[in-house]
Computed example of a mutant assay.
Amino acid sequence: MSWLVVAVLVVGFIGPVLTVALYRFVPPPLTFLMVQRVFEGQGFRRTWVPLEDISPTLVRAVIAAEDAQFCRHRGFDVAAIEKAIEYNAKGKKVRGGSTISQQTAKNVFLWPRRDWVRKGLEAYFTVLIEVGWGKRRIMEVYLNSIEWGPGVYGAEAAAQANFGKPAKALTPAQAARLAAIVPKPLSWKADSPGRYVTKRSGAINRNARVVRRENLTDCVL
């Protein structure tokens, strides 16, 4: 076996598997996006906290907003993907079909720019974390890694920056506001929401109550 083949195996298969295994127990360090934002002059604010120190209201809110079937799928929501394809074929605005698992794989391991190579690797890492981490760890990493404002990453920093309190003390309304700005964290505000974010957060709050009533967080809470 040539050294080239060995290198390809290590980089393309063994490396990702070992990295995913490590991050099962160790908080992932800086992501590509975090580094990019620092070079853009946005600073860096992040405090890793375990899932137990994040309010269940935020877990329910992000599931309601981003991936209602999080506890029911194995990384990919086929129905949501099909709807996104159909929607994008008819309209001009792009509608995503990514699950929280896919978003976590992208945020932690890959670069922000969309391309087919990244999408392929995203699928690969999604399978790895679903198998190697499980839903609770995926949610914990997701809530500690996503961008929630200029230089603000993770639930703890977002709660402190927007409401002056720890993530475990968020109210349902505050959690819904944070969930509402996930798609556009650099332009939407949770602490002083505009009309659209206020309307969106209200809908998320209502849907979060449905999530709780139907126990759609049973894999996490």
Rank of each mutant, 00 (worst) to 15 (best):
I146G: 06
M139G: 14
A159Y: 00
P183R: 01
P172Y: 01
K165D: 14
A158C: 11
A157M: 11
P172T: 08
P172N: 02
A167H: 02
L143C: 10
K165N: 10
P150C: 02
E140P: 07
N162K: 12
A179S: 06
I146V: 15
L143P: 07
A176L: 09
Q160Y: 08
T171K: 00
Y153H: 04
E140R: 01
G154C: 09
A167K: 00
A161N: 11
L178D: 01
R137Q: 07
A176N: 08
A158P: 05
I181W: 03
T171F: 03
L143I: 10
T171S: 15
K135F: 11
L170T: 08
I138W: 11
I138N: 12
E140Y: 03
Q174T: 06
R137S: 12
G134I: 05
V152H: 01
K165A: 15
E156G: 08
A173T: 13
R137F: 06
I146C: 09
A155T: 06
L178V: 04
Y142R: 07
F163D: 11
P166N: 09
E147W: 02
W133G: 14
K135W: 13
S145Q: 15
A176C: 12
L143W: 06
R177P: 04
V141T: 15
A176T: 08
N162I: 00
E156S: 04
P166R: 00
A158Y: 01
G151H: 03
A155P: 07
V141I: 15
V182L: 15
A175I: 09
V152F: 09
A157R: 02
A179E: 02
Y153C: 07
Y142N: 11
A175S: 10
W148K: 01
K135M: 13
P172G: 07
G154V: 06
M139L: 15
A167Y: 05
K168M: 13
A173L: 08
R177A: 07
M139F: 10
V152A: 12
I138F: 12
P166Q: 11
R177V: 00
G151F: 02
N162A: 14
Y153P: 00
K135Y: 13
Q174R: 00
L170I: 12
A176D: 13
E147D: 11
A176Y: 02
A161T: 09
